[in-house]
Design a protein around this nucleic acid. Structure first.
Length: 548
RNA sequence: GCGGGUGUAGCUCAGUGGUAGAGCACCACGUUGCCAACGUGGCUGUCGAGGGUUCGACUCCCUUCACCCGCUCCA
């Protein structure tokens, strides 16, 4: 599957434009950069703010809680929270992130089992000069993987004649440091396949809380914003008069040590999420899942993402998390991806009651198709929950239940990148002599465009700058992001605005000053101009922004 | 993590051991006045970083960082 070179050239151009025009810079660039981290420049910050605000407006502020929106099973409420990045370490143990995200892991190449490296020990045989020959793993105290009574004999037989009679007992670290090369083998007595080298799975950023903090005070930067909502479920219910079904929205930074940060901002180690946890009755959760799936897809198309480059993909059964009843990804065909491949913008997951129950009872795991508290070797919960009651009482139906959760989880940076890629466009337009010239234009949806309108005096004299500044100030007073530009020829100024995606340019000319106080309004995409009275400009732009 | 490529002015790039360049952009002045104008003048550089070889390094060698491409990985 070879990558289309046109599309990868296109991505290079987009990255170059982002830098040149101040959308996105590499983080710490003057020091050589920091892999996986990116900064937003003066235009980028406006664009990303607009993405966030469009999401918050559409999901929370403009939501009508009184009647069922189109496609929704019933009416529902939407509220927001803003929770902190560092949370109690137990949160991540119950959420399941800790087990999967923190430790060095080894995989068996043969039986595909995965083990925590620090849980394994090895019985080792060496030759006369102390070089390791064969190492079989085991897990002390484990039901399945402890060292079997027949282990020594079998190991000696497998190691062959070159081995001495001594069997030593080492950790994986000790084994790795020994001279020569020996591959550790699987602790499963029925397998004994070769293990991979230990690989870091420190996918959560670790930090220390407290100035004198020790390893005991380790905490983590959140790998998702969702847990801040779950742990506040009871607070929100008790304080805001919401009734199930309702959603809680949050926008915030999350952190993951991606193994391979790549593709511009697509896979960043610090990124921003826009998440909703929607709490509903178990009986209606499938309908709500469908509703959010469709609604979130429509959100992207309503802001200008072409549906031919956007897909809604349902996860296969083997792709689903152990607790998820259903998950769909909204994916966009980024220019850096191979033909036919898509990158995830948002996942809509039906999480059942996994999260609330985990924070009540302790970390859950699937057993025989049911979620049960995961136990340690002593039969105690492996990771203890809060013990707090996070069930919900419906006082109309007189029913107590644990709500099910639908989670539409979007990446703000990925959405921003998709809007940038989608907006990038090259066309040909005539210059002043009628010759066709190539033009680069960012065709942002007006709601997302960093600058909504540019005010341009046709020439830098004859009273035009004064008029233009007057109009510029009234636009700014109305809260409309505007730019004033009197520098260089008018055609060049139009092209400058095209390149940063400004949807409209207002030009003040001789007619404005000498005759009737009308100005021209030029459209970025069609290049058409209409004339309107200067005093109507603020209203006209406001109306256009509202209606688009 | 492995392999390949790239890194020089704000941007795109040329320069391969001997005084760092071009185009565009930007700024000033003049002329023109609705879609990348023209003229004149001007500004801009830790040559990604560190070390080495050399009388002398953008150039050769080593190390390192970042980005791109292909594998690998991706809760």
């Amino acid at each position: 599957m070879s990558k289309d070179s046109d599309s990868s050239n296109q991505m290079d151009k987009i990255v170059a434009l982002c830098k040149r025009k101040g959308f996105i810079f590499q983080n710490s660039e003057i020091y050589g950069g920091q892999n996986g981290f990116w900064d937003y420049g003066p235009l980028g910050v406006e664009l990303k703010r607009n993405v966030r605000e469009a999401w918050w407006q559409d999901m929370v502020n403009m939501h009508d809680p009184l009647d069922a929106p189109q496609g929704a099973p019933t009416a529902f409420q939407m509220v927001g929270v803003d929770t902190s990045i560092i949370m109690h370490p137990q949160v991540w143990k119950c959420s399941g992130h800790y087990d999967l995200f923190v430790d060095k892991m080894v995989d068996c190449k043969q039986c595909k089992s995965r083990f925590r490296a620090d849980h394994l020990r090895f019985k080792l045989m060496v030759n006369e000069i102390g070089e390791p020959l064969l190492a079989w793993g085991y897990m002390p105290g484990s039901d399945d993987y402890d060292w079997p009574s027949s282990g020594d004999k079998k190991l000696q037989k497998a190691a062959g004649d070159a081995a001495t009679d001594d069997i030593s007992d080492v950790t994986l670290d000790q084994l790795t440091e020994m001279p020569g090369s020996v591959h550790p083998h699987c602790p499963n007595p029925a397998c004994r396949g070769e293990l991979t080298d230990p690989r870091d799975f420190n996918l959560m950023f670790k930090t220390i809380v407290g100035a004198l903090g020790t390893e005991d005070d380790a905490a983590f930067l959140r790998p998702e914003t969702a847990q801040g909502i779950f742990v506040n479920f009871k607070n929100v219910v008790d304080s805001s008069r919401v009734k199930v079904p309702f959603g809680v929205a949050q926008i915030g930074k999350s952190f993951r040590n991606e193994i391979t940060p790549r593709n511009f901002t697509f896979r960043s180690r610090e990124f921003e999420q826009m998440e909703i946890e929607f709490f509903c009755h178990p009986d209606s959760s499938q309908q709500w899942y469908q509703y959010w799936r469709d609604r979130r897809f429509a959100w992207y198309t309503s802001l200008g993402i072409g549906s031919e480059r956007l897909t809604l993909r349902d996860h296969d059964a083997d792709e689903l998390s152990h607790y998820s009843v259903g998950t769909a990804d909204i994916e966009y065909q980024f220019p850096f991806m191979a033909e036919g491949e898509f990158g995830e913008l948002e996942g809509i997951a039906h999480r059942g009651d996994f999260d609330l129950r985990s924070h009540m009872e302790g970390k859950l795991m699937a057993k025989d198709g049911k979620l049960e508290v995961q136990l340690d070797e002593h039969g105690q919960p492996k990771w203890r929950g809060s013990g707090k009651d996070l069930t919900y009482f419906d006082d109309q139906a007189k029913e107590r239940f644990t709500p099910h959760v639908i989670e539409p989880s979007a990446g703000a940076d990925r959405a921003t990148l998709a809007f940038i890629c989608e907006a990038y466009y090259e066309d040909e337009q005539p210059d002043d002599k009628g010759n066709m010239q190539s033009r680069t234009v960012m065709r942002f949806h007006p709601r997302l465009a960093p600058i909504k309108v540019a005010v341009l005096p046709l020439i830098k004299k004859a009273g035009m700058p004064e008029k233009a500044k007057e109009l510029f100030r009234s636009l700014k007073s109305a809260g409309i992001a505007a730019q004033y530009d009197e520098q260089s020829a008018i055609g060049r100024r139009y092209r400058r605005q095209d390149e940063i995606g400004t949807p409209w340019c207002i030009t003040i000319d001789g007619q404005t000053v000498d005759e009737d106080n009308t100005v021209t309004l030029r459209d970025r995409d069609t290049l058409e101009q209409v004339r309107l009275p200067m005093e109507e400009v603020v209203n006209e732009i406001s109306n256009r922004l509202r209606s688009q």
